[in-house]
Design a protein around this nucleic acid. Structure first.
Length: 424
RNA sequence: GUGGGCGUAGCUCAGGUGGUUAGAGCGUCAGGUUGUGGCCCUGAAGGUCGCGGGUUCAAGUCCCGUCGCUCACCCCA
């Protein structure tokens, strides 16, 4: 028997699933409020999509994808992030032909081959939003505001918004040159990783945490100082909107994000209680992505939020999830005849919207009471030979211990009324 | 890919320097109470001590290897 799950994956057990239900309910709710509609994409895509969309040189593509060949010889890759597949679906299904912008959200598993640790898994879940077809910084702000509004619903405080701009391909090129100019004279002081980064992707030098590199990047030129006119204006207006909404943020010159498609706005939302995995949410603008995938030039902006990390954050914060729905009534069935009657009663109770269950394993009444207690049942109705004969049964209120004598015919209606259920 | 910690019952964990039949709490099942939950009492079931090899008269315990889990680094949600 195989008794272990693959590394870095998790079972979501009944004792946990109410948390997920609660969170996803809140997601659907807030997205409707902001005018976003849900999209679901396949668990795997053509490998090419991630290579082109996310970027050949990124860590995700270079070492973190789950890539396999199907029986037809096609190279496929499990969804490694949410934006490229959403962009692909947007293009493929002609959503650009409808009224713009297109505002989408998703809740999907993400797969990345990494060494697991607290807050990082090989399969995790992300809630993400994407807006296609609107370049105005007001949309960037809407996306950030949605994320904060959502997190605020759980009473979270201590969150930090970090903000930066990575410019457009044009101004980034000149910035790249300035960076190389800054780091090149002191290559020997850089860590081995960064020495190779200087040629491949100098921007990534900025988020290296090695001591030596850290000190060098303190004096490195800031991207913001290299922005071209339009990019600078975008950032200024973005900050204006954030200020108008009273959203507090820190400009962090070292945020560059690990995916190639970002342009202009990049941001992260940090919860410091999570150690190295403190980014609960990360996102930004990606005005070149759709074009990269073969579409007409189309601006886009969005974020991804790790739900496992969100749950860790909430637990760290002492958030109390609403409990699962409890049983309204447990039918204690004593004997086969009684069980037969209870099967019918159950159907009627449930038709009336009453959460009901009964005893299927033939235990004695005492055990059934104990069982009902642990299920959290509000009432227990005792149905045995005596009740079948008289047509009346005992209904016990498990909270107060008081009991009433109710006709079997009226049981369902009685429980429905006592529990205030609307019926179907 | 690199480093630390840990693998004993369904769960949480005890098991100095090797020594008979491997324990506890919780949970499960049964009974005390043959028709009444929470508290209490009794009993039972449940173990390849992660796996493989080695040392030894003797290994859960010591050694080597291996697998798994976990935490951290890198990077990310």
């Amino acid at each position: 028997m195989i008794t272990t799950r693959p590394r870095g994956t998790n079972d979501i057990l009944p004792s946990e699933s109410h948390k997920w239900q609660h969170i996803t309910q809140q997601i659907h709710d807030i997205c409707a409020l902001y005018g976003f509609r849900q999209i679901s994409t396949p668990a795997f895509e053509h490998t090419e999509l991630f290579h082109r969309g996310v970027g050949e040189g990124t860590d995700i593509v270079q070492k973190e994808t789950y890539t396999f060949e199907d029986r037809g010889g096609r190279s496929l890759t499990l969804r490694a992030e949410g934006t490229a597949p959403t962009a692909r679906a947007y293009l493929e299904n002609g959503l650009h032909a409808a009224a713009q912008p297109t505002k989408l959200y998703y809740i999907e598993p993400i797969f990345r081959f990494e060494r697991p640790q607290a807050g990082r898994y090989r399969q995790h879940h992300q809630f993400g939003v994407e807006v296609f077809g609107a370049a105005d910084p007001a949309v960037d702000v809407e996306v950030i505001a949605l994320a904060l509004d959502f997190l605020g619903r759980f009473g979270l405080d201590g969150l930090t918004v970090r903000l930066n701009s990575v410019g457009c391909p044009t101004c980034r090129e000149s910035y790249r040159a300035r960076l190389v100019e800054h780091f090149l004279p002191c290559v020997e002081q850089l860590c081995p990783d960064c020495r190779s980064r200087i040629e491949r992707n100098p921007l990534r030098l900025l988020d290296c945490k090695e001591e030596g590199c850290r000190r060098l990047k303190e004096r490195a030129p800031h991207m913001l100082d290299s922005l071209c006119g339009p990019c600078r204006e975008h950032f200024v207006r973005l900050r204006g909107h954030l200020d108008a909404l009273g959203i507090r943020y820190e400009v962090d010159h070292h945020i560059v994000r690990g995916l190639d498609y970002y342009t202009r706005t990049v941001f992260e939302i940090i919860y410091p209680g999570l150690g190295a995995q403190d980014a609960v949410c990360g996102g930004g603008r990606y005005d070149g992505l759709i074009e990269t995938l073969g579409g007409e030039p189309t601006p886009g902006v969005g974020f991804g939020m790790g739900l496992e990390r969100l749950i860790l954050t909430l637990e760290d914060h002492g958030y109390e999830f609403p409990g699962p729905r409890r049983l309204d009534v447990f039918l204690a069935a004593v004997g086969q005849e009684a069980l037969a009657r209870c099967v019918v009663l159950l159907a009627e109770l449930r038709r009336r919207g009453v959460a009901a269950d009964t005893e299927y394993t033939g235990r004695g009444l005492r055990k059934q009471m104990k069982h009902a207690d642990r299920l959290g049942a509000r009432f227990v109705a005792i149905v045995g030979e005596e009740e079948l004969a008289t047509g009346r049964c005992v209904v016990r209120d498990m909270g107060t211990g008081t009991q009433e004598d109710i006709a079997l015919e009226e049981l369902a209606g009685y429980i429905q009324e006592r529990c205030g259920r609307a019926g179907l």
